[in-house]
C-alpha cells in the first residue's frame, strides 16, 4: 500500500484507466523485446542441444581472428565495412547534414521543394532505390559509362559494371550512401531550425554577428537538443540498419558487398527459408550479436555521454 500512498486520491482514481491502456503494450514489450533479448543471450551460450557452452562464442571469436566464419564469410572484413559505413555515412554524414540542412532551410530559395526532392530516396525505400541504382551501375549504366569516360580503366568494370569488381563495388555503395546522406533533407532537424524565433537572428545581426557565428553559435546550439537526439539515433544504428549490401549483391555478399548487418540478415533469411532446421544458425547468430553488442555499447554510451554534456539547458 505504501507504493500508492504518495499519490493523491484523484490520481489513484485514474489507475484502472492506466492499467487498461498499458496492459497490452507492457505485455507485448515484455515478450517481444525483453524475452527475445534474454532468449538471444541464452542461445549464444548454448549448443544445438540446448546445453550450456562457450563453444559458439569461441567459434565467432575464432572467425574474427581468421577472417573466416563457419560459413567461410570474411568476418573481420565485414566488421571493417560496417565501421567504415557507420563512421562516414551515419556519423560524419549526419554532422554534415546538420550544417547543409541549416543552409537549405534558412538561406536557400525553394528550400521546401528541394527538401522534398532530397526526401525521395527515403520515401521510395531501399528496394526500389537499390533496384534503380543497380541499373545505373551496370556495364551499360549511366554512372559506369561516365566513370569510364573520366578514365576509369578496370576490365571487370567494363565487362560487368561497378558492382562486379572487388576494387569498385564497396567504394561505389559507400560513395553513394555519403552523397545521398549529406544533402540536408532531414525533416526533423529542419523543423527544429524553423522553430528558432527569427528575432534571435535579427538581434544577432544588429550586434554585428557574421554568417559563421550565426550558424555555429546561434542556430546549431539552439537546435542542439534535436540534433543530439538525431546523433544518438545515428550512434545506435551501428550494425543494425543497413540492408543495402544484401540488395545490391542479390543476397550473395560478393565483390566485398558485405557487412555485419548483411551477415546477420543473411543468417536470418536462411533460418526462415530452412524453417529453423539449421539449428547452429540460431546459436551462431545470437553469439555474433552478443559480441557485436558488447563492442558497440561502450561506443554508444560514451557518445551519448558526450552529447548529453552539450545539452544541459532549458527547452522552450
Amino acid at each position: 500500500m505504501r507504493l500508492f500512498s504518495k499519490y493523491t486520491k484523484a490520481e489513484r482514481k485514474d489507475f484502472p484507466f492506466i492499467v487498461l491502456f498499458l496492459a497490452f503494450p507492457v505485455l507485448q514489450v515484455a515478450v517481444f523485446f525483453f524475452y527475445v533479448n534474454f532468449s538471444s543471450f541464452a542461445l549464444a551460450f548454448q549448443d544445438t542441444a540446448g546445453n550450456f557452452t562457450f563453444d559458439t562464442i569461441e567459434l565467432v571469436l575464432e572467425g574474427f581472428k581468421n577472417n573466416k566464419d563457419f560459413q567461410n564469410n570474411p568476418l573481420m572484413t565485414m566488421l571493417g565495412h560496417s565501421v567504415v559505413i557507420w563512421i562516414s555515412s551515419n556519423i560524419l554524414g549526419t554532422l554534415i547534414n546538420v550544417f547543409t540542412c541549416y543552409m537549405l532551410t534558412k538561406h536557400m530559395i525553394g528550400s521546401g521543394f528541394i527538401r522534398a526532392i532530397f526526401a525521395i530516396p527515403g520515401i521510395v525505400g531501399v528496394v526500389v532505390f537499390s533496384s534503380i541504382m543497380k541499373q545505373l551501375y551496370n556495364q551499360d549504366g549511366a554512372v559506369t559509362e561516365m566513370l569510364i569516360n573520366f578514365g576509369m580503366d578496370i576490365e571487370s568494370v567494363r565487362r560487368g559494371g561497378l558492382l562486379t569488381s572487388m576494387e569498385t563495388a564497396f567504394p561505389t555503395i559507400l560513395t553513394q550512401s555519403i552523397i545521398f546522406n549529406i544533402a540536408g533533407g532531414n525533416m526533423i532537424v529542419a523543423g527544429a531550425y524553423m522553430r528558432i524565433p527569427e528575432e534571435i537572428f535579427e538581434s544577432a545581426k544588429i550586434e554585428g554577428c557574421g554568417f559563421f557565428r550565426e550558424t555555429f553559435q546561434i542556430a546549431v546550439p539552439c537546435a542542439w537538443p534535436t540534433i543530439s537526439t538525431m546523433l544518438t539515433f545515428s550512434l545506435c544504428s551501428f550494425f543494425t540498419a543497413d540492408l543495402s549490401f544484401y540488395l545490391y549483391s542479390n543476397g550473395t555478399g560478393s565483390y566485398g558487398m558485405n557487412s555485419i548487418s548483411f551477415a546477420l540478415y543473411k543468417m536470418q533469411v536462411t533460418i526462415s527459408e530452412t524453417h529453423g532446421s539449421n539449428k547452429i544458425l540460431y546459436n551462431y547468430m545470437s553469439a555474433l550479436g552478443i559480441i557485436i553488442t558488447v563492442m558497440t555499447i561502450p561506443v554508444v554510451l560514451l557518445g551519448r555521454k558526450v552529447l548529453a554534456r552539450m545539452n544541459d539547458t532549458v527547452e522552450f
Binding site: F32, S39, T232, L264, M267, S272, Y282, M285, G289
Partner: peptide, 24 residues
C-alpha cells in the same frame, strides 16, 4: 521504469536477436 523502457528500446542497440525473435 516504463519511461526508461521506452528510452532503452531506442538508444541501446541490441544486435543479432533476429534468430531468437524468429524462433519465438
Amino acid at each position: 521504469l516504463l519511461f526508461g523502457v521506452m528510452i532503452f528500446t531506442q538508444t541501446i542497440p541490441i544486435i543479432g536477436t533476429g534468430a531468437a525473435a524468429w524462433k519465438l
